[in-house]
Structures are given as structure tokens and as C-alpha cells.
Design a protein around this nucleic acid. Sequence first.
DNA 1: CTCATGCAGGTAAACGTTTACCTATCCATC
DNA 2: GATGGATAGGTAAACGTTTACCTGCATGAG
Lengths: 331, 331
Amino acid sequence: MATTIKDIARQAGVSTATVSKVLNRKDPFISEETREKIWSLVKELDYTPNSIARSLITRSSRVIGIIVPDILNAYFTELVRACDLAARERGYSTILCNSDSDPEKETSHLTFLASHGVDGIVLAASDLIPDAGLLQRLGIPLVSMDREVPDLDCLAARIDTDYETGAYLSASHLIGNGHRRIAFVSGNPLASNTRIRRAGFERAHREAGLPVDQDLIECGAFNHRFGLMATRTLLDRTRFTAMCCMSDMLAMGATVALRERGLNVPEDCAVMGFDNIYIAPLLVRPLSTIERRITEAGQLAIGAMIDFLDDPTRPRRTVLMEPTVILRETT
Amino acid sequence: MATTIKDIARQAGVSTATVSKVLNRKDPFISEETREKIWSLVKELDYTPNSIARSLITRSSRVIGIIVPDILNAYFTELVRACDLAARERGYSTILCNSDSDPEKETSHLTFLASHGVDGIVLAASDLIPDAGLLQRLGIPLVSMDREVPDLDCLAARIDTDYETGAYLSASHLIGNGHRRIAFVSGNPLASNTRIRRAGFERAHREAGLPVDQDLIECGAFNHRFGLMATRTLLDRTRFTAMCCMSDMLAMGATVALRERGLNVPEDCAVMGFDNIYIAPLLVRPLSTIERRITEAGQLAIGAMIDFLDDPTRPRRTVLMEPTVILRETT
DNA sequence: CTCATGCAGGTAAACGTTTACCTATCCATC
DNA sequence: GATGGATAGGTAAACGTTTACCTGCATGAG
């Protein structure tokens, strides 16, 4: 049986209220003597407060839930780690949930997090449109990252990336290198984070006076499996000399598909990624990509969340992070 | 304010005990009528039980904590995902903690998990020797994975990989290909999961009648940064035609270091990895490696954990998973 | 001497559940 | 008419905290 506040109180000859006050450094009207006695008992009996009981009464757990669509995507791994580190620095912990881009799983994660009393939830980039009614009912502070969410009262912040510019930069770089037929591979075609990227891709073409051939476009998911399949489909369907992949995982899959067909990167086909995940430079052909500063994004998300928890009245933050080009050897 | 069991009870005109019994399908002596009324109120009021209150009294949260040393290592990403999926299938959730191979962080995670009432903790491969006293005091069921832990009462299972054979296979494959000077790169030299691998590496040499040059050995950590540094050190110090890396992340770092010096893989230097992480085939030179069946390992861990929670008296399980060779293009 | 104030600490309710045990009614049986 | 066992449900304590409010006591001012 773990030691409780009662054990401490009994052995110190005081009430549990006094112990609680000392532990939480809440009340100035406790003698130095009592304080010391309590702290030494805490050490001696190896007391750790029961967070469950505490959050039951305080209605705050100092835990933040994070929902990502695909933890295997190194982008999210980095993001989650950054969030966790940032949270820990501010005395919070995180609970990670992986939705596999499945709406049902996401809903069940949401209720799980709610019933476990998390103080806030970070919803990271996903194709899914969350259940607005559910979010409203839960009323848990939310931070959205690169994601469409309804504009609810509990929306603490929205952290987005300027996908339009990112995709524009990616396509412009390839066009600048003389490419005229560039494939575009991205996530769910219905989701805004793909539609917006596509707009940037098309703007780059428009400004260069180039047409956009619809045959060069494949949208479905952001993982490497889709990158592989989409590239095979594209190779079967048409010809191109470069690929604009809207995630590094897509680019990895694409590169594999190109090799499969005996095409060299970048000689026969250039490949641009998106995200600058930490393994991008480690792929033996290091990947040219769009840098997104994942760590900073995670810190921003958590920071915004906690600021909101501290003071829900402060103005909502909307951050639009500017991506930059990183050139390596695939282009 | 979220609906509670009291709201349901009041509106149904019954006591909270009755509601609780119905919700938990615990008592047969409740009329069909009352049952239906309660369930319909649950739907109508959108009631979700407060897990915090529940676990306070039941002393069980149906949550399992997982502690990994480095979530950025794709091996652990896969492992964590596998654990999470397996847990979810059995009605459990997981909380992920990343220790960064830092003993203090690990301790703080342990007490965090304890104070949040997790039902069990999975301790995944790490150089660290956990604080036996702490684990003993916490008394939380533990599953160790590829890791040295004291033999406590609460140790539910130990899932290990036959590192000796794995390293032996890796070295033997390279020796079989005619290599005579093979570098060995692994994690913390003091930890068993490196010592054992080294034994396998040396056995392969012994059986082939080859000496092991200590200059070819670099041990420190399992991440790609160490792979990069160690390979640079090795290249400065001596000559070799192949590398036995004891994790895929190490191999990725090593390959980058080799390229840096203008060496081609595998022509100038062959590289073997270890783990078969999902990105191994995606590196543009797909990585030959030792397969470890990460998913299965995760499932085993969680399965063992839950079996133990269900019935703590059942005999402890010790699984020794046999690794196999996967040949790709780096060797 | 009274009264206010500062200090040190205690009391008990509350958070939302679960659960051991109690009660009341009904009906059949001896 | 007493006994007993289903059946249906209620009572209240308990889990480990926190916290609003209360109680004494000492001190100093008026």
C-alpha cells in the first residue's frame, strides 16, 4: 500500500489539511517546524501524491493529450517528441494517441482523453474533420495543428504552416531547374492541407507560364506506401522529370518506386520532399525538402495550450509558420 | 459541466448504485425497464464515465505505461505503436514516456506513471539499470524488453531478443562474403545488450578462425548520431571493408559517414544494420539487416502484461525471439 | 479590559465513482 | 401463519486529495 497524505498526517501529528498545504506550498501560516517535520516524513516514507485523487478534486490533471494520424510518419514522431519535451518543461505530461486517420478511432481517443481528465488536446494534421458536436460537448481546450477544425469556444490556438508557399517554393525550385513536367503527390485530395498545397503548386506553374497536366496529380495519403503506389501509377500513366512530394514519407516511397523502374534520382527524375524530417539527410541520397521547423511548431502548440490553460481570456493565437527550402542531393 | 452518474440517477428516479450496476452490467436484479431508462438517458445526456473517479476507487486504470529510451529511433516508434495497438485491442490504453536514456528522466517517468495509477509498465531496451528499490516500492507490474532489470516480484515478463545469435549472423554473413576486417558499432559498452552482441560478433570470428581487432570496435549509443561519429573515428583510426552496426539507426549514420569520405556502399564498404525498421527498405540503398519482428515483440509484451494483470499467479513468461537475416542492397 | 489582528492549524465537505450490505416486496411452501 | 428465497433496488462508506471556513491563542492598541 502506497503511503498517503493520511499516513504523513498521522505520523506528524497534524491534520491532512496541514500536510496538503505544506505540500502545495499554499499556506504561509504553518510553522517552520511543522513544515520540516512533514517534508522529512515525505522523504522517509517515500510519499508520492496520488495524481488521480488530486485531479478528481482539482479538475485539472496537468496532462495534455496529443492526437496524431500516423505516428510512424517520422514527422509526427518528431512532433510528438517536441510536444512532450515542451510540456515537461512546463510541468505537464502528455498522452499520445494515434488515430491511423480513422474517424472512429479519433472519436474514441477523444472520449478517452476526456474521461481521463486531460487539461487540453492537441489535434495534429489529419485529413479528418473532427466531430464538432463532440468537441463542443467535451469543452476541452484544443490546439489544432495544420488542420481544419470548427471554430469552437474551446479552440485555444491554431498552429498552421503556410502550405501554399511551401508547395509554391517546391514547384518553383523544380521549374527553375528546367523541369517542365512535374508530378504532384499529396494526401487526401478533399482535405485542406492538400488543396492548399495544390494551389501553391499551380501558382508556381501559372507564374512560369506553364500548364498543369491533371495526369501528373496523385493525391491520397501522406505515408510512404502511398508514395510508392502513386509513383507507380504515375509512371504507368505519363512522363515527367520531377516530383513534388508533399511529405518526406511520400518522397521516400516515390524514390523507391523510381529505382524499381531503373530511374536514377536526380538524373532521370528529381524528387522534392516536404517536412525535413530528421532522417531526410540520412537517406543515402539525402533528400531536398521543405523545412518546417517541427520542434518549434510543437513548442508553439504546447506553449499556446498552457497559456490558454493559465488564462482562458487571453486572445487566441494563430501562428503561420513560413517554410524554407533545404537543398540536398535529390534535386 | 459534464454529466455524471448522479444526473442519470436523478432523472431516472433511481439511486447512483443502480445506475452504476447497470453501466457495469454487474447486477442481474435490475428490471429491464430501469435498465432501458438508464441506457437511454446515457445516450441522451451523452454520459461518459469519469475514469479518474473510477480508477480512484477500483485502483485500476486500464492504462499501461511504456518507457522507451529514444522515441526518434524508428525501432521504438514501431514498438510503441505495436504496443498501443495491442493494448487497445484488449481494452487498455497506453501512456508513452521517452527517457532520452537519462536515468533521472526515467525515474521521474516511473513516479509519474505510478502516481497516475497505471496498471503496468513496459520498460523497453535501454542502457539504464533501473532503480530496483523504486520499482520494488512502486510494486507496479513490469514487463522488460531487451533490458536488464532486477528480478522483482512485480516482474510480469521479460521479452528478449537473442542478440548473441543476431550479431553472430550479421558478422557471419559478412565473413562469408569474404570480409576480413569488420568494424563493430553498438550501444553503451557497459550494457548487456551490447556485451551480448559483442560476444556473438566475436564467436563468428572465432569460428572462422579470424582475430578480432579491438581497433575496429566502437560502442556508445544506438542512435544515428553515434553511428556517424563512430564511423568517422573508425575511418580515421584504421581500415575495414565492412561494418556490423547493431541498430539500423547506427547503420544509417554509418552510411552517411562513409559517403562523406567518398566511399561507396557496398562496393568500398558493406554495412549491416540490426532491427529491420520500416524505413530500412526505403533508404535509397536499402539496408541489409537483421529482422527482429518488432510488432510481434510489442504484442507479446502487452499480452504478457495483461495476462499478468488478469491473473498474477500464472507463471512468468520469458520469450527469446530468434532474429533472422534480411538481405537487401548494402551488403 | 476589550477588541482586532496575525498566526497555526483543524473540520468536514467535496470530487464521481464502486460496492458491501441492507431493505422491502412478492410469492410459494410447509 | 411463519419461513424463505427470489427480485429490485437503496444506503452509505470508501478511494486520496483539496479547500472554504472555522477555532483557538497570543499580542498589541485603545
